[in-house]
Design a protein around this nucleic acid. Structure first.
Length: 423
RNA sequence: GGAAGCGUGCCGGAGCGGCCGAACGGAACAGUCUUGAAAACUGUCGUAGUUAAUAGCUACCGUGGGUUCAAAUCCCACCGCUUCCUCCA
């Protein structure tokens, strides 16, 4: 939710942002008008209400003879107040409808346009080449007996899989390494609920246009979360948090569920796009003026993880039109996937400025003791999808996979995952 | 799942339909006193909206409705918590 002060003071800034995103900018003028109208209606109501309160007070101290007339006058006032309230409420509803539709104001300097208009920030590492015919992660997973897609489908349907043996351990190793890294940088580990109530799902903005991406359990009126961001953002909802000693940082681990409703036919092979996976997500609550630096910090940690996994990757600054509605800026890092000869997104880190926190009502006290809306940021530190890049990048001619050195301590020291021997 | 009880400010805890944004106690903050601290004393001490305004006004006593001239107080629904029974990891 955007700042209504900004709407009053600088609607042009919001319009420019809407334009960069490719969104309708006339809605901003509508919102300004609706805001003015609401305030006018509110004042009408409040002054009538003040009159009513004063009148009601008189009844209490009035004599028996005076009362009937006063009560009758009160009845008339009550009718007026009721009518004025209805008008004011309707005006507020209308204003909210408009204001909720306006997406976060993008940070100046990010590229305008859609998905293909990103700015390339950097490329790190060399794209892996092989002097043999490389296998894709599905073939490797089968050969090493570490990913069992066939049985995943048998048990749960398409886009499900089993991680088995070293595959399962590799994922846990990666998550643990990520958690260690995050912990060293002041992130508190948090294992979050993955079933949440409708109001939390709506509050974090995931019930909008992406609602058919989300699993819903009607018998219990609960939603399965597609990312721990939902729980992490809801964690401090309606609270005044203490940021005087620095930001609040969390590393949330959870299983994530996605229906992939709109992606039939896309990435059907392997575990690149699945209904269920695990993710370690960083989340920061911070003073707005520090948000951009924090964003760089999140990105730096993501890069540290990618480098620890010895992956080749690039970092992009996403264009305005490709941002989620809460994000003011988004950095994605994409790892090179040899079998696809292309970069695939492994991390995504968004600076939501105060947009998300305003909707969730998360505030802090500034130096003067005044409450201010906090800023929130989130970023991926590891997900199941990383296994695709790790396996494919570090494969060897015989189908074995070299374990990146940084991961070995988490895997009992093993250096190579060998093909299954037993038939 | 069955039974009973309870939800008030940072915490504890009062509250008769009107004089309750809410007694009282504690915590916290500021000051007096003190070489300094403690104690004692004095004061401050919720959030938000509107407004030029730290003036005024409005709203908020779990949430949403309702009754009434007037609701923390009465009625209804929902949510949550506690205890007991049942069940269970």
């Amino acid at each position: 939710m955007i700042d209504s002060n900004l709407l009053r003071e600088n609607p042009d800034a919001i319009k420019a942002s809407q334009r960069a995103r490719g969104n309708d900018e006339s809605i901003v003028d509508d919102a300004v008008a609706a805001d003015a109208n609401w305030r006018k209606c509110l004042q009408t109501y409040e002054s009538l209400r003040a009159e009513q309160n004063a009148a009601a007070k008189l009844v209490g101290s009035a004599s028996k003879e005076e009362r009937p007339a006063l009560i009758q006058a009160g009845q008339v006032l009550a009718e007026k107040v009721k009518a004025a309230l209805e008008i004011a409420n309707a005006a507020e509803v209308h204003l909210n409808e408009l204001i909720w539709k306006i997406e976060n104001v993008v940070i100046e300097g990010i590229p305008a346009g859609g998905e293909e208009n990103f700015t390339l920030i950097k490329e790190v590492g060399t794209k892996q080449t092989f002097d043999f015919e490389p296998r894709d992660h599905v073939a490797l997973g089968e050969l090493l007996d570490i990913i069992d897609i066939e049985r995943g489908v048998k048990v749960s349907g398409s886009r499900f899989y089993f991680l088995k043996g070293w595959g399962a351990r590799l994922e846990l190793a990666m998550m643990n390494m990520a958690l260690d890294l995050a912990s060293k940088h002041d992130f508190t580990a948090l294992i979050t609920p993955t079933l949440v109530r409708p109001e939390v799902m709506a509050g974090t903005g995931f019930l909008g246009e992406h609602s058919d991406e989300i699993y819903y359990l009607p018998a219990d009126d609960l939603y399965l979360t597609g990312t721990s961001e939902v729980a992490l953002a809801g964690y401090h909802r309606d609270e005044i948090i203490d940021l005087s000693a620095g930001p609040l940082r969390y590393a949330g681990w959870s299983t994530c569920y996605r229906r992939e409703a709109g992606s039939a036919g896309r990435d059907t092979r392997g575990i690149l796009r699945v209904h269920q996976f695990n993710k370690l997500e960083m989340f920061s609550y911070i003073k707005p003026e520090d948000a951009e630096n924090e964003h760089l910090k999140l990105l730096a940690l993501e890069e540290a993880m990618l480098q620890a996994c010895e992956l080749s990757y690039r970092v992009i600054d996403t264009a305005a039109g490709d941002l989620g509605s809460s994000a003011a800026r988004k950095y994605d890092s994409e790892a090179w996937v040899p079998s696809q000869q292309t970069y695939r997104e492994l991390t995504s880190s968004s600076n939501c400025t105060t947009y998300q926190a305003r909707r969730l009502n998360v505030r802090y006290r500034d130096e003067n003791g005044k409450t201010q809306t906090a800023a929130t940021l989130n970023g991926t530190l590891a997900t199941t999808r990383w296994l695709v890049a790790i396996l494919e990048t570090h494969q060897q001619a015989d189908g074995s996979v070299r374990v990146p050195a940084a991961l070995r301590p988490y895997l009992g020291g093993i250096e190579v995952i060998e093909p299954k021997v037993r038939a």
